[in-house]
């Protein structure tokens, strides 16, 4: 299997406080990888480092064998990395359609964009109902579907999801989990999933990393981790 994303020894600081210390993570082509851990463990910082929203201090980030750290976010979108940010971040005063079209901002071929749009609408029929509604007026779950759809509009090879279950009704969490699985399977998109909801994340991923205080504490097959007592201990802030 070829690696699509490879993080080697990432260090990241906020002001003078470290957020990541020597994190190494890899995602293989076609795989779904989960990043779990308690609040403040550094999960979101990893995604910020990958997308170039935060500059890393040392280490190397490779995408398809190419060094990408230091590249601006817009270049990464063109290369095929799309991110669904934490807290959804819809464009509240734009319609659902305009929001989705913003996802395809870096693409120029109109016919292909329309094709992707139809795929997204077929995948999330709810969005079709709300097509001309301002995105800010939708429910949390609908917004979450829309931002996943918006990220898909860029036709990514790698999808980064930051806490997709946060602030979403429990019933809809399952829907979202199912659509992540489907996207990974049908669209041949590799997924890096950051989650607090470890049960959901472990159930839909193949491998997982557990983060604690800025470094990887555990790594392995998701199936095995589901029953691992150590994972729960880490969640409660314990040490190994």
């Amino acid at each position: 299997m070829t690696k699509i994303l490879d993080l080697q020894n990432i260090e990241l600081y906020y002001d003078h406080v470290y957020a990541l210390r020597g994190v190494s993570i890899e995602v293989n082509e076609g795989e779904t990888v989960a990043l779990i851990g308690a609040n403040g463990a550094g999960k979101s910082s990893i995604l910020r480092a990958i997308t170039g929203l935060r500059r890393i201090k040392s280490g190397q980030i490779e995408y398809k064998g190419e060094k990408i750290n230091g590249l601006p976010p817009e270049r990464l979108v063109e290369m095929g990395i799309a991110m669904v940010p934490e807290g959804r971040r819809v464009f509240p005063f734009m319609t659902v359609r305009d929001n989705l079209m913003m996802g395809a901002f870096t693409r120029h071929n109109k016919a292909e964009i329309t094709q992707t749009l139809e795929m997204v609408l077929a995948r999330f029929p709810r969005l079709k109902e709300r097509y001309h509604q301002a995105a800010g007026t939708m429910s949390g779950g609908e917004q979450q579907m829309m931002v996943i759809g918006r990220a898909l509009m860029a036709k990514p090879k790698l999808l980064l999801l930051d806490e997709p279950s946060l602030g979403v009704a429990p019933k809809l969490v399952q829907d979202i989990a199912r659509s992540i699985v489907a996207i990974n399977r049908d669209e041949k998109v590799s997924v890096l999933l950051v989650e607090q909801n470890s049960r959901m994340a472990l159930s839909i991923s193949e491998r997982a990393y557990v983060l604690a205080t800025g470094s990887v504490a555990l790594a392995g097959k998701s199936k095995e981790m589901r029953d691992d007592a150590r994972v729960q201990q880490l969640y409660l802030g314990g040490e190994l």
Binding site: E74, V77, R89, M94, R150
Partner: peptide
């Protein structure tokens, strides 16, 4: 469209490219 997106959510717009 880019400017409207930027005004509504700077970070999200950045992530859209």
């Amino acid at each position: 469209r880019a400017m409207r997106a930027l005004a509504q959510d700077r970070m999200a717009a950045q992530l859209m490219g």
